[in-house]
Simulated assay, not measured.
Amino acid sequence: MTMMDLPPSLISTLPGEYYTDPAIFAEEQERVFEAMWFCVARASELAKPGQFRTYQVGRESVLVSRSRDGSIKAFLNICRHRGARLCTEESGEVKRAFQCPYHAWTYGLDGKL
């Protein structure tokens, strides 16, 4: 009898360490979440310019916002200067720009410094 002949309830799963081993988890993060596009939201969730949402994608915090021209932009939720998180809230709205709480570097709604 082969594995293909077994009823679904008797097919074995991965060994337990595949669910708990930090090295396997890190490899999954790299190969799945960091190697390809990943859908985090619908455009309708950001109806007007200045609205934003933050998402944890693998090991990175991502900031998604609607820019002034109406397009959706996504970028890492960190300041290039000192690595501080730009937005700590899950969602919200800014009037003009995102400002780093550390040294006040300012980024437009499109992510440009």
Rank of each mutant, 00 (worst) to 15 (best):
I72T: 08
F98C: 03
Q51Y: 06
C100R: 06
E27M: 13
I11L: 12
D110M: 03
V64P: 08
R80M: 11
G108Q: 03
Q99R: 10
A47M: 10
L63W: 04
S71P: 09
A41G: 03
A74W: 02
P7G: 00
C87H: 06
V40A: 01
S67F: 02
P22T: 09
T2G: 04
Q56S: 09
Y18W: 13
P8Q: 06
S65K: 02
L10Q: 12
V62Q: 05
V94Q: 00
W37E: 15
E60L: 09
G111Q: 04
C39Q: 15
K95L: 14
T88E: 14
P8F: 01
T88N: 09
Y55M: 12
Q29W: 04
L10V: 10
A47L: 09
L10P: 11
T54K: 03
L10S: 10
Q56Y: 04
S71W: 11
I24A: 06
V64S: 01
C100H: 03
E17P: 03
A104S: 08
Y18T: 09
F33H: 04
F98Y: 04
A43G: 07
Y55S: 04
G83M: 01
S12G: 08
P8Y: 00
A97N: 12
Y107F: 01
F52T: 10
S91L: 11
R68E: 14
K95Q: 14
A74G: 11
A97E: 12
E17I: 11
W37K: 07
T2R: 13
P7I: 08
K112W: 08
A43F: 07
M3G: 03
F33C: 07
E34N: 09
P15M: 05
D110Q: 05
F38H: 15
Q29R: 10
T54G: 00
G108E: 02
E45I: 09
R31W: 08
A47V: 10
L76R: 14
A84P: 13
F33E: 08
T2V: 12
E89I: 08
R80G: 14
V57D: 07
Y19M: 01
E28W: 03
C100G: 00
Q99A: 08
T2F: 09
S44H: 09
P15L: 06
R85Y: 08
T106L: 02
R42H: 12
E17V: 14
S71C: 09
V32H: 02
D69M: 05
R96V: 08
I11G: 02
E93N: 13
A23I: 13
S12M: 13
P15V: 09
V32C: 07
D69A: 04
G50R: 02
W37C: 07
R42E: 15
P8L: 01
P101A: 01
A84Y: 03
R85F: 07
L46A: 02
F38D: 06
